[in-house]
Write a protein that binds this DNA or RNA. Structure first.
Length: 808
RNA sequence: GCCGGUGUGGCGGAAUUGGCAGACGCACAAGACUCAAAAUCUUGCGGGGGCAACUUCGUGUGGGUUCAAGUCCCACCGCCGGCACCA
């Protein structure tokens, strides 16, 4: 054995070489391939081995594409505004700008340990004024198009983070970041009209090569439903009450109506007798937190004393108030059909409201209903002209019929709400708006962007609903860009998602001070071909980015409507709970974080890269086990020795080794194309074992070793580059073409076939590949010998696989 | 409650989509080398039975389809994730 495998020396040598002579260069002729990682926020904890996983996957894929002749766009940047960065800074008692810069430096150092082919000339940082200039510019364009607007309304408020939140940031009534119970607070907020894009966001999902799970989550988040609005007259009053329903077919069964307690007419519907109870109910509801309202499923409500008239049959239906009706969905009022809706049924039972069945399974009414009949198929009964119709048909036709009859209209609704865009925190992009007493809200002129985030003594959140920026009077007080009179700046900042909604466009033209991205570069390098990151952004970041891209398409900045053609979600890397042994998220508080730094030192970057893939299927969560690295390291050492000891054997290309070579290429390539990265590593190990066996008798030729090295290069770049040079090349292994395989060359002349009796394998025979069925069966029966007893009922031969003799 | 995903040795996981279950690796055990250890190499490694060739059971549970089921169908159970009064 000549030179032992020394990962430290090799990795150091090649990293320096690649820094000086990058292997991924844009010669202007190659086709581009844009492979993007979700950029990290620079946390003070640094990276753990879980972060590496996604970065390794994307780098392997990038290098694989590179070896197919693409110019690979593979950039990295920093999502550095927002709550996590600010909370960290507050905790450490430093300014967020300082802690962020420090964290970026540390994480950048760690990311470089991966030896990915990131192009740092493309780096972006959302907190850089030259970057957020364009984040603000987009906001101004949205304002001009009427998509950014101000509204005072009760919004989700996190009392711990002391800021308003978007709907998407509230998980089960709790703050997505800190887990505190979210309350409601009435605040004047900037909103983005994402709902104007609801249909396009929904429809275009079909064009995307994304995990079905993510598409489904977005579909459900948008929550489009089809139905009708129906106008109900109110007895003794002028106003009508409009309800939204997806089941207009059940209109004859409406026996009461419920309004959200926040409904505009709620108070005025009360009579002398009910006034006190109604006002009490409205007041009590207003005190409930969103968590209470989510969890208290027991129905409550109050009768207003007023009646509505069912426009279809003139029936008088009592109007109730209840908090199970949401004020901000549909019209905030519903017609209730207790016979065919679980919630209405529960409410009717509790308050003794009549139940009228209008859909029947078999034409007969159910006696003593114990639960609602919610299926949307059956025969209409108790429904006047509609009797006898099939309800599923009627459901589709009823909206148009109602529209014709003049008391309603066909309509659709969405669960998606407009995006609450203001944050009452310091560490974000200032919203570039000036409030003028005469002109109203006026955008900061574009030539004055970026509107810099001012220096401030105390950037702690105030908790009052005002941003810390409000205290900086000489910043707040300004003049109106429109009329020149004294005016005040908007003091709220943008949410963390503002920069991340479009950063991927900026990488390819990150130094352009005239445009967000030049038309030329956008056309040439965008959009993203492959986007890799965790599934936690299935709705938030990925929905916002799609919205921004569609807006930028509408105003002519880019000519594509979807930012990310293909999406891959890698699974988490979990630690083990020290006591129970169960898989748990890696976290500082559990003390089970594994840092990549020590592993790189002890085993090397190549080993860690391979282990990140070998640990399990890339799309599933996996459990980290340090000991697994040993096996990887042994494999690399064995392979190193194989090449170093046998590269000069001068073995000829025997048919045996050629077969082995084609199988190796086939296994690695097909598994890689399927993103089955864990089994690619298995294939490497298996073929390495085979070659080591063959090398003992000096059967392994140089071309086979070279092929192995090339295939291994995207996965373990340093050792592969070193060995490629040892094999006599001057150029980088990444200039090599990806090897091809020939399926014919992989085949053996003889094949093994399992021989079964009644489906149980008894023996294995080796036969010629082209053997005829009769010959195969004869050989099988002969091999079974006297094991074969009884009467043969059936003989089955599956070519190349199995012989099964069925006996009785 | 609804919708996804998932369940295979002591552990991480394979299985060409219905065709020899447990590839590859970890851990473990025995042996070789060594004064010794480490490293390395060789062999073994799902359970039961047998000196053995072999035999039998076995992919969360219970049924079913099939010559053949981890894979398909029906009914359950456990874990993980999403949604959750959206009318």
């Amino acid at each position: 054995m000549a030179v032992p495998y020394n990962h430290r020396a090799i990795e150091k040598k090649w990293r320096k070489e690649w820094e000086e002579h990058p292997i991924n260069v844009n010669d202007g002729k190659k086709e581009k391939y844009y492979c993007l990682d979700m950029f990290p926020y620079p946390s003070g904890n640094g990276l753990h081995v879980g972060h590496w996983r996604g970065y390794v996957i994307s780098d392997v894929w990038s290098r694989y594409k590179l070896m197919h002749g693409y110019y690979v766009i593979h950039p990295m940047g920093w999502d550095a505004f927002g709550l996590p960065a600010e909370n960290y800074a507050i905790k450490m008692g430093v300014h967020p700008a300082d802690s962020t810069a420090k964290n970026i430096a540390n994480i950048k150092r760690q990311i470089n340990e991966i030896s990915a082919i990131y192009d740092w000339d493309m780096e972006v940082n959302t907190t850089d004024p030259e970057f957020y200039k364009w984040t603000q510019w987009i906001f101004v364009q949205m304002f001009k198009k009427g998509l950014a607007y101000e509204k005072e309304m009760p919004i989700n408020w996190c009392p711990s983070c002391k800021t308003g939140l978007a709907n998407e940031e509230v998980v089960n009534g709790k703050c997505e970041r800190c887990g505190a119970d979210v309350t409601k607070k009435n605040l004047k907020q900037w909103m983005l009209k994402i709902t104007a894009y609801a249909d396009r966001l929904l429809d275009d999902l079909d064009t995307l090569d994304w995990p079905e799970k993510v598409k489904k989550m977005q579909t459900e988040w948008i929550g489009k439903s089809y139905g009708a609005e129906v106008d109900f007259a109110v007895e003794n009053r002028e106003e009508k009450i409009t309800v939204y329903t997806t089941r207009p077919d059940t209109l004859y069964g409406a026996t009461f109506m419920v309004l959200a307690p926040e409904h505009a007419l709620a108070t005025s519907l009360a009579t002398e007798e009910t006034k006190a109870a109604v006002e009490d109910y409205i007041y009590k509801t207003s005190l409930k937190s969103s968590v209470d309202r989510l969890q208290d499923k027991e129905k409550t409500g109050v009768f207003t004393g007023s009646y509505a008239i069912n426009p279809l049959n003139g029936a008088k239906v009592p109007i109730w108030l209840s908090d199970y009706v949401l004020a901000d969905y549909g019209t905030g009022a519903i017609m209730c059909v207790p016979a065919h809706d679980d919630r209405d049924f529960e409410f009717a039972k509790k308050f003794n409201i009549p139940i009228i069945q209008v859909i029947s399974k078999d034409g007969k009414e159910i006696e003593d209903m114990t639960e609602a009949y919610t299926e949307a198929s059956g025969i209409m009964i108790n429904s006047g002209d509609w009797n006898g119709m099939e309800s599923s048909v009627l459901k589709k036709e009823a909206p148009a019929m109602i529209e014709k009859m003049g008391f309603g209209r066909k309509t659709t609704n969405y669960k998606l709400r407009d995006w609450v865009f203001s944050r009452q925190r310091y560490w974000g992009e200032p919203i570039p708006i000036v409030h003028c007493p005469d002109c109203g809200a006026v955008p900061v002129p574009e030539d004055q962007l970026p509107l810099l985030l001012p220096e401030v003594d105390s950037y702690q959140p105030t908790g009052t609903g005002e941003s810390p920026l409000a205290d900086i009077t000489d910043w707040v007080n300004t003049t109106c860009p429109c009329c020149g009179k004294p005016a005040k700046r908007e003091t709220n900042t943008m949410p963390q998602w503002a920069g991340s909604s479009w950063y991927f466009l900026r990488y390819v033209d990150n130094k352009n001070d005239k445009e967000l991205v030049s038309k030329e570069k956008a056309d040439k390098y965008l959009p993203v071909d492959m986007y890799i990151g965790g599934v936690e952004h299935a709705v938030l970041h990925l929905l916002y980015s799609r919205f921004y891209t569609k807006f930028l398409y509408d105003i002519g900045v880019v000519d594509f409507q979807e930012p990310f053609k293909k999406l891959f979600n890698q699974g988490m890397v979990c630690g083990r709970d020290k006591e129970t042994g169960a898989a748990t998220k890696m976290s500082k508080s559990l003390g089970n974080i594994v840092s990549p730094d020590d592993i790189v030192r002890d085993y090397g970057c190549d080993s860690l890269r391979l282990y990140e893939l070998f640990i399990g299927p890339p799309e599933l969560d996996s459990i980290w086990d340090d000991r697994g690295l040993e096996g990887i390291y042994r494999f690399l050492t064995k392979f190193w020795n194989l090449v170093m000891d046998h590269k000069d054997d001068g073995a000829p290309e025997s048919s045996k080794v050629v077969k082995e070579r084609h199988r190796l290429v086939y296994d690695v390539t097909t598994r890689l194309e399927n993103f089955s990265l864990n089994t690619v590593i298995s294939a490497f190990m298996e073929h390495n074992n085979n070659l080591c066996d063959m090398a003992k008798t000096k059967q392994v030729d140089k071309k086979t070793l070279e092929t192995f090295v090339i295939l291994l290069a995207p996965f373990a770049p340093h050792i592969s580059e070193e060995l490629y040079h040892e094999l006599g090349h001057d150029a980088s292994v990444f200039t090599a073409q990806w090897p091809e395989y020939d399926e014919k060359a992989m085949e053996d002349d003889e094949i093994e076939i399992a021989v079964q009796i009644n489906g149980k394998t008894k023996t294995v025979i080796t036969v010629a590949k082209e053997i005829a069925k009769e010959d195969a069966l004869a050989a099988g029966k002969e091999a079974l010998g006297d094991k074969l007893t009884g009467n043969i009922v059936k003989e089955i031969y599956v070519p190349g696989r199995i012989i099964n003799i069925v006996v009785k």
